[in-house]
């Protein structure tokens, strides 16, 4: 063999960030719990305490504002995460497959409800460094860290699998158009797909 190459489809954020990492970072930044998600039992207890504390704070703010939801409450509840999601089509497919409801798309931004979470996905402005910026995900529902972490991991894993499927279909279709023949196609237990293409 003469060259070995690793490529990242434009469907994914080039510098691949796992959502678990993103979640942990976001928790640290917002100071909601001040610890990495699911690190140990002590942290779980702490997360639960933080969740209860947040609920109490919301009740207090609601009482202060005659039951009206103020910006202060929204800021307290909303959390934002970086994602690896770049392609709107793949993201919509992932959300639909995951049972999202009330999906709305406006100017490339997506909002939906899923597993009790109210979600908003919006894109940043393209920059010179990043022509295809990934979506940022905003969660506008109160939730505990454990269910949030599981939810984010599930969506992330489904998106990457859909991304793999999309790449597979594109590669097969384009190889065919160039009259390049696939000699062998293997699928491994971990869902890795290997295509052997003749180039004689």
């Amino acid at each position: 063999m003469s060259i070995s190459v690793v490529a990242t489809p434009f469907l994914l954020l080039p510098a691949f960030i796992s959502m678990a990492q993103a979640a942990a970072v976001a928790v640290g930044v917002t100071g909601a719990a001040g610890v990495a998600v699911n690190e140990n039992v002590g942290n779980l207890v702490k997360n639960e305490q933080e969740y209860i504390k947040m609920n109490e704070e919301i009740k207090r703010l609601l009482a202060k504002n005659d039951g009206k939801v103020s910006q202060e409450i929204i800021d307290l509840i909303c959390r934002e995460f970086e994602t690896v999601f770049v392609d709107m089509g793949v993201l919509l497919k992932t959300l639909e497959e995951h049972g999202a409801q009330n999906i709305y798309v406006e100017n490339g931004n997506i909002s939906c409800e899923m597993e009790g979470f109210m979600l908003e996905f919006y894109k940043g402005e393209p920059t010179q460094e990043m022509a295809f910026p990934p979506y940022r995900m905003k969660i506008t529902t109160r939730c505990d860290e454990n269910s949030l972490e599981t939810f984010i991991e599930d969506i992330n894993s489904e998106y990457t699998m859909n991304s793999q499927e999309e790449s597979y279909n594109k590669i097969k279709e384009r190889l065919d158009k160039q009259n390049m023949r696939i000699e062998e196609e293997e699928v491994y237990d971990d869902n890795t797909i290997v295509l052997t293409v003749n180039i004689d």
Binding site: M1, S4, V6, T8, P9, F16, I171, I199
Partner: peptide, 21 residues
């Protein structure tokens, strides 16, 4: 034999090796 081995990983990454080129 000249071949391309294209590997599509479940995490979305794609690897490729050329053989005989």
């Amino acid at each position: 034999k000249k071949q391309l081995k294209i590997t599509l990983l479940p995490n979305g990454e794609i690897k490729m090796e050329t053989k005989g080129v």
